[in-house]
């Protein structure tokens, strides 16, 4: 699984960083981006889904992969 934050949608609510601190980080403006090229280890997949579901701006894209 991979995650990607759409920078044109993210407004910096920081919900993803709170819900999945290993998968997302923020820049100096407080906007979120994916950490580690967006690669989601299997044990963090539930966190990734939770972060995507809770983004108020619907800015997080999940790629479930093959």
């Amino acid at each position: 699984m991979r995650v990607h934050v759409d920078p044109s949608r993210c407004q910096g609510h920081n919900r993803c960083v709170l819900l999945a601190p290993g998968l997302f980080e923020t820049d100096d403006q407080g906007f979120a981006r994916e950490a580690n090229q967006g690669l989601v280890p299997p044990e963090l997949e539930a966190q990734a889904r939770r972060a995507a579901a809770n983004c108020p701006e619907l800015a997080i894209l999940l790629d479930e992969g093959p």
């Binding site: 910096g12 579901a53 108020p56 701006e57």
Partner: peptide, 20 residues
């Protein structure tokens, strides 16, 4: 609660500056 995409801090470009 999840999902919880509440608007308590607003949404869009004017989202609460002091959110954190």
């Amino acid at each position: 609660r999840s999902p919880n995409r509440h608007l308590g801090f607003g949404i869009g470009p004017h989202r609460c500056l002091g959110i954190n």
